[in-house]
Design a protein around this nucleic acid. Structure first.
Lengths: 144, 144
DNA sequence: ATACACCTTTGACTTAACTCCAAGGTCAAT
DNA sequence: ATTGACCTTGGAGTTAAGTCAAAGGTGTAT
């Protein structure tokens, strides 16, 4: 069991952020001590880590709330609904992945061009690095 | 040449956002008409698209400004500095990529479990899907 | 020449996501 | 029994990133 300060420190965030997440129904501590102190379990910590990772890749708190709300309820027949939500989010993730892979390629090309090869003059900005990427994929396409 | 409304519409954003980006030195239109209208070129549009994609994967505007400022200036000897910045950003991108791949795997597992296989009971929430991922990678590690 | 859609600027307002503050309770150590 | 680090609540303040509104200029179409 973590008290609020311990969990905050462990995850490197402000303790007020934890209260804020509680107020916004993202993460409620599993229990309270006699005297009213919030007590977080290891599972609560997993949820928090999930929230922080999701935030880091550009999900909003309300999107994260949606992700956390996903529950395949076998008894209830809401399975199809859940699958729709999951597949929508999966699509979002895959779009983000595609973007990031493009950024990665551009930055790599830039890093290599810099102080590296003979072709230092070729790719001088991230936009040019991106363009050369685009050109590689599409047809040649000059404009100055 | 796009006027502000045209570019905003083409990129599906508010025209005030373009003024906001200009005020914050992220994107300044290449020229103005006689009467003072902002005129954006195709290159300006490329920059805007870059900004929007970067935002989408969780970069802040000031990080994006940094990315856009990268220029390998051969004359100037700042090449090493640039490489450091680029490599730092590359690391950031690769961390984000790793997170997203994990999300993707979890969501896929969830999607497959739902309405799909026999094992519908196994992975009911994104956290459980994540956990089973963790378990696959690390040692077995029970806690209830 | 007058609508009308579009543009200008300045400045105030909004929303998401925190972050801080005040006034006070808890608890282990001196 | 009191200090000091921790916790509580409620509410106000901040920052990033827009978004809107007011007052007025532009430019093409009737």
């Amino acid at each position: 069991m973590y008290r609020i300060g311990e969990l905050a420190k462990a995850c490197n965030i402000n303790h007020d952020t934890l209260r804020f997440y509680e107020k916004n129904a993202l993460l409620t501590p599993s229990s309270r001590s006699e005297s009213g102190y919030r007590l977080y379990t290891e599972k609560d910590k997993d949820i928090l880590e999930f929230i922080l990772r999701a935030k880091n890749v550009g999900f909003t708190l309300s999107e994260i709330k949606e992700l956390l709300s996903i529950e395949v309820d076998k008894a209830n027949n809401a399975c199809a609904d859940v699958k729709t939500l999951v597949d929508t989010k999966l699509q979002t993730v895959e779009n983000k992945l595609a973007e990031l892979i493009r950024f990665q390629a551009s930055l790599k090309r830039l890093s290599d061009a810099c102080c590296g090869g003979e072709e230092s003059a070729e790719h001088c900005t991230i936009l040019e690095a991106l363009e050369s990427d685009t050109n590689a994929v599409r047809h040649e396409h000059h404009h100055d």
